[in-house]
């Protein structure tokens, strides 16, 4: 019994000392680890590792925390995690805004832009002349029909909860299509791989930058060009009675996000992270090392750091 109390006591003392150490060092960057969020796609993983490794080289402690794309914003706002390198406008804008209202901090945009929309492999250009125009695709619906969709063309859509309104778009544009939402991204790629190998027609949801462009040759379908009014004013566009009669923005932002305490506890690191700025080619190259060359994200990050010294040295100034 006595041994137990002694153990507990020493634990308490230890914790108190740790806490004292943490507050004492507040003038400099804290020795606590910065918790960098990792998601489950390549570019994000490699970029997170790039930044983590640079920070570590500067003597900052870093911890990687894997998280879901939606929940990470609650964690950022609540101070449970500290930094996210890829905030996508198309799929995460809403949750990101909410997090900003809840205390998270906008760490600025990358030069890279993002796009999320309907996408098809290049060999379909011969099957459906007129692509990438959406009207040509609509005319080609019969070739994309399956047993389940009947006479309608099959569009392999994103997971239903990703907040896209493709069924509405199909209706608004009076397209002869049906959306079949998948459960997760892996399903999209399995569909694409299978169709690609068999040279079958397929139209599916895709985004850039990601590893798909390195492995598969294809392009986005061109819908009526996006304007904010399209989503708010039914009169806008070809269908006077409906919204969503347009494509998605072709140049969505890619931002960085941090927790409130990031700037307070690690001012030097925060200044660096604010300056971080990746371009589309840089991101694609980073992802390709993993997806095409089969490296681990850690090794890919190491190689990227070695290859792009000038780039990241500038961010540290």
């Amino acid at each position: 019994m006595r041994a137990v109390t002694r153990f507990v006591k020493s634990g308490v003392v230890g914790a108190a000392m740790l806490a004292a150490g943490a507050t004492g060092a507040s003038a400099q960057d804290s020795s606590d680890p910065i918790r960098i969020i990792t998601n489950n796609w390549t570019s994000q993983l490699v970029l997170s590792n790039v930044l983590g490794q640079i920070l570590q080289a500067q003597g900052t402690n870093v911890e990687y925390k894997s998280s879901d794309t939606q929940l990470q914003y609650t964690a950022l706002a609540g101070g449970d995690m500290d930094f996210q390198v890829e905030v996508w406008e198309g799929s995460q804008a809403e949750a990101f805004e909410k997090a900003l209202a809840g205390g998270a901090v906008d760490y600025g945009a990358h030069e890279a832009v993002t796009r999320e929309d309907w996408w098809y492999p290049k060999y379909m250009n011969e099957m459906c002349p007129g692509l990438p125009d959406w009207k040509a695709l609509d005319a080609c619906a019969g070739k994309l029909a399956t047993a389940e969709t009947g006479s309608k063309g099959r569009f392999v859509g994103p997971p239903a909860d990703w907040g896209k309104h493709y069924s509405e778009r199909i209706q608004a544009l009076k397209m002869n299509f049906q959306e079949v939402p998948v459960g997760q991204a892996a399903t999209l790629w399995a569909e694409l791989q299978a169709a690609y190998d068999r040279k079958e027609p397929i139209v599916l949801f895709n985004w850039t930058p990601n590893f798909i462009e390195a492995k598969f040759d294809g392009q986005f379908v061109e819908f009526p060009v996006y304007e904010p009014a399209c989503l708010s004013d039914p009169k806008w566009g070809s269908n006077p009675d409906a919204v969503y009669d347009c494509g998605a923005p072709a140049k969505g932002y890619l931002k960085k996000a941090g927790s409130k305490q990031l700037g307070e506890k690690w001012p030097k690191a925060a200044a660096f992270l604010k300056k971080v700025n990746f371009t589309n080619p840089q991101i694609a190259a980073a992802a390709a090392m993993v997806d095409v060359d089969g490296m681990t994200p850690e090794d890919a990050a190491k190689k990227w750091i070695a290859d792009n010294e000038a780039v990241w040295k500038a961010w540290l100034q």
Partner: peptide
């Protein structure tokens, strides 16, 4: 999925 697509 590769053989039977996203379907029931």
């Amino acid at each position: 999925i590769m053989l039977f697509q996203t379907s029931d």
